[in-house]
Design a binder for these strands. Structure first.
Length: 366
DNA sequence: GAGACGTGGTG
DNA sequence: TCACCAAGTCT
């Protein structure tokens, strides 16, 4: 059970926090120029699991490309993905377009003005709904993100595991008590600024934090223990073959399935080793694996090619839950009818978004 | 509720 | 090289 502060202490905390925010908050951020829900929303989605300095140029480009929510609602998917290229978690932008269409069609283009309604839009969860509701519409709801977890856990010595979904409730209730009813948006943003500066995950500087007098963990020297968070599993290793087939008509190119990793991205054919080797067939030599890949290529795409391995170490790429090790195979063939995929010139396919792993493969080929 | 979902930065 | 982090949401 969390011991909540008395009224006077809460009032003092709000005042201290907001005075610091007015003085030293990140007023320069491009999404803080106004409180337009469209601007707040786009920035909040981009900032999910992504650092501020990474987001800034993406935000500017996004607004230049889609100045209004109506522009976003009607954009072609490849344009959407191109604008998001390199940011990752691409379902974020696909969900944004769905939400844009919901606002345009179901709300006549007028944003719902409260957390509960906002959270019904695709891709808007409890955090983003609270952020928009508080910043754009002055609703006193706490935006519980990684920063709030970190800040509140230290202020109150909350030892609930923040990796557990149910823990959000504990922090939300603390936030509801603390949030300034007059300036809820500024309060939430101040907590975020605090959580990414003086009260960051590593190299935090509680000694100079404006709210150090309110920081129970700092005051008794236990801040190293907060927040409590069980660690994520290691990325699982997966072996892949990437096949660069070149013809005078271009490269063999294919669109990935809509759902799953890198959904709807175009890449060269990629085979996981487990696509054709099961546990019972362990200990294949690399030559045998290449021969098997060659057969799969003929069956799946109708391309008969003599695959050569690109020398050097395989390309590696780490995702949150997977670690890919990709061996590159190449072939040159005559133009021909394909069973699957299409021939596309190098210049043509550069127009489309590409995932980082494909970029790494190109780099190795050139 | 646990796992899926990208990429870049840091120690 | 590796572990872990960075303004989460969906299934």
């Amino acid at each position: 059970m969390i011991e909540m502060w008395h009224e006077d202490k809460i009032a003092a905390f709000r005042q201290t926090l907001l005075e610091w925010y007015d003085r030293e908050g990140r007023a320069d951020l491009p999404w803080r120029r106004d409180h337009e829900p469209y601007h707040v929303w786009v920035s909040e989605i981009m900032l999910q699991q992504t650092q501020v300095q990474t987001v800034i140029p993406y935000f500017e480009r996004f607004m230049a490309t889609f100045p209004t929510i109506a522009d976003l609602a009607k954009a072609p998917e490849q344009v959407l993905l191109k604008t998001w290229e390199g940011l990752g978690y691409y379902s974020r932008v696909r969900n944004m377009q769905k939400a844009a269409q919901q606002v345009v069609n179901d709300y006549a283009g007028v944003w719902p003005n409260n957390m509960a309604a906002l959270q019904k839009l695709t891709g808007i969860g409890p955090y983003t709904a609270a952020a928009i509701a508080s910043i754009s519409f002055n609703e006193p709801v706490p935006a519980i993100d990684g920063n709030a977890f970190r800040v509140f856990s230290r202020l109150f010595k909350i030892d609930a595991d923040i990796a557990q979904a149910k823990t959000r409730k504990v922090f939300f209730e603390v936030g509801e008590q603390l949030i300034d009813p007059e300036r809820p948006g500024d309060f939430n943003q101040a907590i975020m600024d605090l959580g990414s500066s003086y009260m960051s995950a590593k190299n935090y500087d509680s000694e100079h934090s404006p709210v150090k007098a309110f920081n129970a963990a700092y005051l008794d020297g236990t801040e190293d223990f907060y927040p409590v968070k069980t660690k994520a599993p290691k990325p699982k290793p997966v072996t892949y073959f990437a096949i660069a087939v070149k013809s005078p008509a271009g490269y063999l190119w294919e669109q990935r399935p809509a759902n799953g990793l890198l959904g709807n991205f175009w890449t060269m054919p990629l085979y996981a080793l487990t696509d054709f080797i099961t546990d019972s067939d362990a200990n294949w030599t690399e030559d045998e694996m290449i021969t098997a890949t060659q057969k799969r290529l003929a069956v799946d795409y109708g391309v008969v090619a003599d695959l050569k391995k690109v020398t050097g170490r395989p390309v590696t790429h780490v995702y949150t839950h997977l670690k890919w090790t990709v061996t590159i195979l190449t072939a040159e063939v005559a133009p021909q009818q394909l069973v699957r995929g299409m021939w596309r010139s190098f210049d043509d396919l550069q127009e489309d978004p590409q995932p980082k792993i494909q970029e790494k493969i190109w780099r190795r080929l050139s």
